[in-house]
Amino acid sequence: MTTVPPANIPPANPSDGARPPFRHELYPYRGDGQFLSGTLGYIHEALEGGEAVVVAVPSDKASLLRRELGDESAVTFVDTTTLGPNPGRLVGAWVAWMKERGEGDRPVRGIGETAWREARSAAHLSELRYHEWLLNRAFARSSAWSMLCPYDDADDDRSALESLSRCHPLIRQDGHFVRNEGYLTAEEYPFEVLNPPCDPFQELSFTHGDLAAVRAKVSRCASDAGVTEEQQRKLAVAVTEIATNSIRHGGGRGTLRTWTQDATFLCEFRDAGYIPDVMAGRTRPTVDQVGGRGLWLAQQLCDLVEIRSTRDQGTTIRLHVDVPH
């Protein structure tokens, strides 16, 4: 890591009108004391610069901050648990929160701490990390916004911290941020390889005219797996969208596989298409937008969505639905 001297850091609210680029900082801490010192320092910087702050941290951490901040009106607390478990919904939520608080072109800072220990699976953990990497893309052109990501390092898990830090261009230490030399600057995110489907899995090849067959297959398998009727209705929309994308943009055909793994029902779609936009489906569509709603709906309706897409190997999308115990 390279320390960035404060003199080289653009001011948060410069007088010449130019604004710094989006700052995305990881803040590893241990204990409540370090959490408070780091986050309060970040918040006070914001308040001194006339910026608003949006805080999305676990409830116990939110209580600590609330006690310190009192009724500071420039700070808004939001609850990410209302979004559900899918990290694919977080970018859209942050965009909305930042826009809401940044009315009138007011700069906004976010503080977002993920409850990493509550990750439900390796796939969930992987998508949480990917979300952190995507934030750099999502807000790359949003100079009015910046984000601090506190990370509870109490477990001293070097590997976990290293994986996460690669998604943050900056690290906060002792009240300053330093440039993270280990940050992934490549255009493509180095995803973990998807595990093969669990045996036994069901498979269906589909093409134009087969949407009803796709829904029927998924409905039967989901019902057998114990997916609730309400979940099935949402899943029916999601699989319709993804299968439609395969037919329209993925070479006119695709392959569906379904299986159950632990307490998750999965639908996997493979086709020959390529999704070049890593932000596809991550931001809320506008009312006049003609297309681009399919992946967004899938992210909102499923408990986890994994998307792997390359020019060479085509696209694989896995829709996860948590099966009630």
Binding site: E230, R233, K234, V237, R284, P285, T286, V287, Q289, R293, W296, L297, Q300, L301
Partner: peptide, 19 residues
């Protein structure tokens, strides 16, 4: 409309005024 249809309508951005 059932709950899922209404949810999708809102998620798709069509619940805004003026439509």
């Amino acid at each position: 409309a059932n709950d899922t249809v209404r949810l999708c309508w809102e998620l798709a951005g069509y619940a805004s005024a003026g439509l």
